[in-house]
């Protein structure tokens, strides 16, 4: 038993080490790509030369890497808790939730690195604008799908462990919000698809795909994933409401609030970034600032996840 525990501890430490290395690699690669990218595509032009524009671009993106670090640390905290649960009933379901968070914590920096790589290749005429636009859009969809499907599977599992009633008021609110968001998204997409004046760019995938492809390979999957995401929020809240154990329920509060915040804000961020700038009439800098504000609030969500996991881990350690 002691040997098995040591083997388990060693493989867990190796897993964490590999994650730190991967994160460090992605963070460094991101900075390198920003530096190599033509300053003409910089968020803010200082009018003081290309090198200054590059520097400003790098400085503006530095807080983003700190946010990624918060996300990674939050995942590692949750991983520590789930490691204690092992193969228990709740352990198996929390493992899915943990893996969904892993997809987000690595997916976020990976997507930024990938997007800047497309921009760099585009600037050197290695790839076309259409390829860059389509690759950017669908890579975000894939990462979102992996994260939300894993989290949804996990929350569905823990929800079954809590015997209780449906939370009808919460269901009503979430349904209304979901329908409003879905309808707004479809309206904005339809507007964009039918606007011939929208210039082709890496952010404007509607130009390169027929309307039916946009609807069935982008809009429908995103609406499905967002619905799953909203359902996950509901299931998490319901589990926290009805699971047995008043001390355990209190320890779950921060984790529930954190996940609800993170899932909801991820949906909001995807809503904004999936639509082209032209559709929302926002400049690159404005979009960047909005994304930053959302990321900052999302950071609080990840901090709540980390503190919640810490409270739950205490129950498993004392």
């Amino acid at each position: 038993m002691e040997v098995m525990d040591q083997v388990k501890h060693h493989s867990h430490s190796t897993h964490r080490y590999r994650l730190y290395m991967l994160f460090g690699f992605l963070a460094a690669l991101y900075f390198i790509l920003i530096y190599l990218t033509n300053p003409a595509s910089a968020l803010l032009s200082t009018h003081l030369g290309a090198d200054n524009d590059r520097l400003v671009s790098l400085l503006l993106r530095l807080p983003l890497e700190l946010i990624w670090l918060v996300v990674l640390l939050s995942y590692l905290r949750l991983d520590g808790y789930v490691n204690h649960l092992g193969d228990n009933k709740d352990g198996r379901h929390f493992a899915y939730i943990k893996n969904g968070l892993l997809a987000l914590s690595i997916g976020m920096p990976a997507l930024y690195v990938l997007n800047n790589l497309w921009v760099l290749l585009l600037q050197h005429d290695v790839i076309s604008v259409s390829f860059a636009g389509i690759a950017t859009t669908y890579s975000q969809l894939i990462v979102t799908a992996i994260a939300i499907l894993l989290i949804a599977r996990g929350t569905n599992g823990i929800n079954r462990l809590a015997k209780g009633y449906p939370l009808n008021k919460l269901t009503g609110v979430l349904l209304f919000v979901g329908i409003a968001v879905g309808a707004s998204f479809c309206f904005l997409v339809a507007n964009n698809v039918s606007d011939p004046s929208a210039a082709p760019s890496i952010n404007n995938v509607w130009h390169y795909l027929p309307a039916w492809a946009v609807i069935y390979t982008l809009v429908v999957p995103y609406l499905f994933l967002w619905t799953l995401g909203v359902r996950s929020i509901y299931e998490f809240i319901r589990y926290q409401h009805f699971v047995k154990g008043n001390v355990y329920r209190r320890a779950l509060r921060n984790l529930t609030a954190g996940f609800a915040t993170v899932i909801f804000l991820n949906i909001a961020l995807q809503f904004i970034t999936t639509l082209s700038r032209q559709s929302l009439n926002l400049s690159r800098l404005t979009l960047f600032c909005i994304a930053y504000i959302i990321y900052a609030i999302m950071c609080l969500g990840y901090i709540l996840i980390a503190t919640g996991a810490g409270h739950l881990q205490k129950i498993e350690e004392v």
Binding site: D90, V243, K244, G245, Y248, E316, V318
Partner: peptide, 12 residues
Amino acid sequence: TSDYLGPASERF
């Protein structure tokens, strides 16, 4: 214990 620690009671 399950009235207080729920799913964690047996492990605890």
